[in-house]
Amino acid sequence: MASANIVTKEQFDEVCAALWSEIEYQNNLARRTDDSEALQVPSYLTLGQVYLNKAAEDWALNAGDELALHGLRKVAGIFVRGMVYCGVRNRAPVIA
């Protein structure tokens, strides 16, 4: 069994599948207008923060984690979309 602070490939794949379902959901949402959608890094950070605050409130006001986990998936989807549209940056290798 993996350590609690190590993410396994299987766990990562499960998260990616859930994240893809969120991206597909977001892809099908009606767009307000082209000029009012998140287009730059600050837009995604702001949108993510709004939904992060909602997820925190859902956790604080409801028993269990279910609503907050829904929000966590939504926030992850927003940030993945921001990386896709604004640019993906890989972490630089750590030199020991």
Score class of each variant (00 low, 15 high):
V94Q: 15
P93T: 08
N62G: 04
D34E: 14
D35T: 07
E66P: 00
Q49A: 14
N5A: 05
G82S: 02
A63V: 10
A96L: 12
V7Q: 06
Q26K: 05
V41C: 07
L47S: 03
V80D: 05
S3I: 00
A55G: 03
A2P: 15
D13K: 12
L52R: 13
G64V: 05
L39F: 00
E22C: 08
Y25I: 01
A30V: 07
E10L: 05
N53G: 06
L45I: 12
E22W: 01
K74L: 12
E22K: 10
D34W: 06
W59M: 12
A17W: 00
E57D: 12
Y85S: 02
G64M: 05
T8E: 07
A56N: 15
A96G: 11
D34R: 11
V41L: 11
E57I: 10
D65R: 06
E37Y: 01
V15H: 07
Q26G: 02
L61Q: 12
A56T: 09
P42S: 06
W59T: 01
V88S: 04
S3T: 09
E24P: 00
E66L: 10
Q40M: 10
R73T: 05
S43G: 15
A96K: 11
N27K: 11
Y44I: 07
A30S: 12
V7P: 00
C16S: 06
L67R: 09
D65A: 08
A4I: 09
A18I: 02
R32L: 06
A76W: 00
V80H: 10
K74A: 05
D65G: 02
V84Q: 12
V75F: 02
Q49M: 11
A68S: 14
D13W: 01
A17L: 09
G82Q: 03
E14N: 10
S21C: 08
R89T: 12
T33R: 09
G87Y: 01
A56W: 02
A4W: 04
